[in-house]
Design a protein around this nucleic acid. Structure first.
Length: 266
DNA sequence: ATGGTTGCACAGCAA
């Protein structure tokens, strides 16, 4: 089975590219982040025509996560248990569209769009850390229930866990994505039993999944590794290969993130 | 070319 994750930065503006990429890459399951649309705006029929079942959650022009699968898609769950809600000023808290889970080909797949902390002093950073901690508690519980559970936590984590995961640490001296609490949150996921199954097959330095649209970051090879597939022990044992499709970042109309693909042995 | 990108409520915010 082939599984991929991709922050597409708007599914409506990227539908042609996603369709072409699906046909070229032949993946069985694709997790999408930043669909940036509401339910009725998602191009469900296009992907169904290619043989995929679709689950999506999106409430507005922000966030939005989806799963496409041609190996079954059951027990869809929007948001993980205990997922924090975002409370803007005095407004009512809302559950943002940042997590959707389903069972696809025997794997419990979660498409995740971890909140962007924005800056080290922004309330969004506290939200991000609380969100990650709640995810860790839930995910650790799944392994307590079943140590052999096949779980894939995939998506845009908005964390660069190692110095090699950004092109120049000096640029990020006072930035999110590399701060100790964010890295600790990522390490806690790993400690809970969820391994980065892509890095062993795509060692750095200089290996990234995201390049800012500005400042010619992509041609200058100035990127960040922030999109990850974290696998439970039973899933990690099945990973036979992984790649980051840097080619897909090229050309007009590319997302600022590249797809990340893993191969699972039967 | 004194800016430099893209996407979405097409205006200013988010990434």
């Amino acid at each position: 089975m082939r599984l991929a994750t991709w922050n597409v930065n708007s599914i409506r503006s990227r539908a042609d590219r996603v369709e072409a990429w699906l046909q070229r890459s032949d993946v069985d399951v694709l997790a999408l982040q930043e669909t940036k649309c509401k339910a009725e705006q998602f191009p469900t029929e296009r992907f169904e025509a290619l043989g995929y079942e679709v689950a999506h959650v999106g409430h507005s022009q922000w966030n939005g996560v989806a799963l496409l699968s041609r190996v079954g898609l059951t027990d869809v769950e929007v948001g993980f248990p205990g997922m924090p809600w975002w409370a803007k000023d005095d407004a009512e808290p809302v559950a943002e569209a940042r997590a959707i889970g389903a069972t696809c080909g025997g794997v419990r797949v979660w498409s995740l769009y971890v909140p962007n902390g924005r800056s080290l002093t922004d309330p969004h950073l506290d939200y991000k850390l609380a969100w990650l901690e709640a995810l860790r508690v839930s995910a650790a519980g799944w392994l307590t229930e079943d140590a052999e559970a096949q779980v894939a936590l995939v998506g845009d984590w908005n964390i660069a866990p190692q110095d090699d995961d950004v092109w120049d640490m000096a640029v990020f001296a006072n930035s999110t994505h590399v701060s100790p609490p964010e890295r600790a949150a990522f390490a806690a996921m790993v400690e809970a039993g969820f391994a980065d199954v892509v890095r062993p097959h795509t060692p750095g330095p200089g290996v990234y999944t995201y390049w800012d649209y500005t400042q010619l970051r992509f041609p200058r090879r100035e990127g960040m590794r922030i999109d990850f597939v974290l696998g439970s022990p039973a899933l990690a044992r099945r990973v036979s290969d992984a790649r980051i499709d840097r080619e897909e970042r090229k050309g007009k109309g590319a997302s600022d993130h590249a797809p990340v693909v893993i191969e699972l042995a039967d």
